Simulated assay, not measured.
Amino acid sequence: MNVFFEQSQIDQWISEDASCLDLTSHMLGLTEQPAMLRFVVRNEATVAGTEEVMRLVQACGGQTRLHLRSGARAAPGQALLLAQGPAQALLRAWKVGQNLLEFACGVASLTHEVVRAVQAADPAVAVLTTRKHAPGLRKLALKATLAGGAMPHRLGLGETILVFPQHRALLGGWDEVGQAVARHKHAMCEKKIVIEADGLDEARRAIEAGADVVQFDKVPPETLARIVPELRAAHPGVPLLAAGGIHAGNAAAYAATGVNALVTSNLHYAKPADIGVKIELADGRGEQTLPAIGVPATGMPATGTNGFR
């Protein structure tokens, strides 16, 4: 899953929790004792973020023996990542790694649930995730939603053109939006111009103003089910998106309206996955105490050493 995390990001996560020292480990004399670390998921989950936790462990001075790749499905009790190294290294990586996995796997698991529900209603409908999440979490949230089967809607303001009612208000109205689009559309030939609408009338105005895509905001699914066929008949080449208030409980209903995609922020606020952590003494090599990681999902193998692939 090719979401790129700079080493400075990994180091920052570590520094937030243990920038100077682990005072508890220092007091207890836990330093170079050979140890093993295991992250285990307590409930069925979609895996995300294990590659970043692997790098985190390495940055703290440990070595990862085995991990499940992001996108795999893990069964209850299955280990997501196994590591070995000096006790002080694993203890430093412990809580940061657990927090990352709980957030990422929670988001990936909810995304997987929503994507499955949408595909059951209409396999042609995409699930897209927004840039609305807590600051600093963009890359991790993106990786988690990709692992769950969604795609990004918009990664930043400079990536796409999306005209909101707030833009219209500042310009003066629909006529001014249309004039601005007409002036610049030739220079934006490689971009799609998306305009938000709150119903059928605004959708028509948006298309008249030059919208390549119409995004409906907070329009109930029963209303969309009436609007979409009429717009499809008049403008068959204009993709239609549903956004605002979409979640696991209503995603299938929205998918059944005939829109091309659902745009949601809800997935970023998933309940964290329940990740257990076990740290214990090793024999110095880790060969005898390495527990089984379980069977990874089809097509998403575990990676590592000690005979596992």
Rank of each mutant, 00 (worst) to 15 (best):
T289H: 11
E202G: 10
D22Q: 04
F4R: 13
A251S: 03
Q7H: 07
A79W: 05
L262G: 07
L290F: 14
C189M: 09
L100Y: 01
C105W: 02
A169E: 14
A147S: 03
L128Y: 06
A93W: 00
M1A: 14
I195G: 12
A248E: 15
H67A: 07
V219F: 03
G245P: 11
M27V: 13
L224Q: 06
L290Y: 09
H133P: 00
R92N: 15
K271W: 06
P165S: 10
E230P: 08
A206Q: 06
A234G: 08
H67M: 12
P236N: 14
T160C: 04
V114D: 13
G199Y: 01
G304Y: 04
E6K: 15
I14A: 04
S25I: 06
E6F: 07
A270N: 06
A117E: 14
R65N: 15
T111R: 09
A117F: 05
P296L: 05
V219T: 11
G299K: 00
L21R: 11
A75M: 15
V114N: 13
E176I: 08
L231A: 00
Q63A: 11
Y254S: 15
E230I: 07
E176S: 13
L231I: 00
L100S: 05
V238G: 14
H235R: 09
Q179H: 07
G276D: 09
G178L: 01
G148K: 00
I10Y: 06
A144L: 05
G29M: 07
R138Y: 03
V259P: 05
P229K: 11
R285W: 15
A255W: 01
E287G: 03
G286C: 11
A251N: 08
V125Q: 14
I14H: 09
M27A: 11
L30K: 12
K192P: 03
K271L: 12
M151R: 15
Q288W: 15
A233Y: 03
G61D: 09
P229V: 05
D217K: 05
I246K: 04
A242F: 06
P220G: 02
Q78C: 01
P229A: 04
E16Q: 10
Q63C: 09
Q12N: 10
E280P: 09
I275A: 04
L281T: 12
P239M: 00
D274I: 07
A252P: 12
V295F: 10
G49F: 04
V228I: 15
Q63D: 06
V177K: 07
R309Q: 15
A255M: 11
D22G: 03
R42Y: 01
L56P: 13
G136P: 13
H268E: 01
R38H: 11
Q9E: 14
A89S: 09
C20R: 13
N250H: 02
G294N: 13
V238P: 14
V47E: 02
P34S: 06
H184T: 03
A248F: 01
G245I: 08
K278D: 14
H268C: 08
A255C: 13
L81T: 00
T64D: 04
V41L: 05
R42E: 05
V263Y: 07
D11C: 00
Q166M: 13
A197W: 06
S8T: 02
L137C: 05
A144G: 08
D217W: 01
L128E: 08
G286K: 12
W174R: 02
V214Q: 08
V118R: 15
P236A: 10
M300R: 15
A225R: 10
G178N: 01
N43K: 15
P135Y: 08
G244H: 08
E202W: 02
